[in-house]
């Protein structure tokens, strides 16, 4: 349930709590009023025209590092 896709924040308008996000060249205006903080360059999850949450880059990197480790182990096997 709940289709939400990560897109990059390209522009912010704090007065209206709106942002322009982009997903591989597709640009869409979304509301940022559910976010406590957001900055240009952040990746946010988009659902029904709202940014639900920021993607945590540190946590994402940790998960991906684990996958990289797995592939490295496989390469050595």
């Amino acid at each position: 349930m709940c289709l939400a896709v990560p897109a990059r924040v390209e522009a912010l308008d704090e007065a209206t709590a709106m942002a322009v996000v982009s997903l591989d060249g597709i640009r869409k205006e979304v509301s940022t009023q559910l976010l406590e903080q957001v900055a240009i360059g952040d990746y946010v999850l988009i659902h029904v025209g709202f940014a639900l949450e920021r993607i945590d880059p540190v946590e994402a990197a940790k998960t991906l590092a684990l996958f990289a480790e797995l592939r490295a182990m496989d390469g050595n096997a």
């Binding site: 559910l34 976010l35 406590e36 999850l45 639900l52 949450e53 993607i55 945590d56 880059p57 946590e59 994402a60 940790k62 998960t63």
Partner: peptide, 18 residues
């Protein structure tokens, strides 16, 4: 929690308050 890049322990406080 496997989906740590988008899920925290307490969730989105602002959205919950709203």
């Amino acid at each position: 929690n496997q989906y740590t890049r988008a899920v925290s322990a307490s969730g989105n406080r602002k959205a919950k308050a709203l």
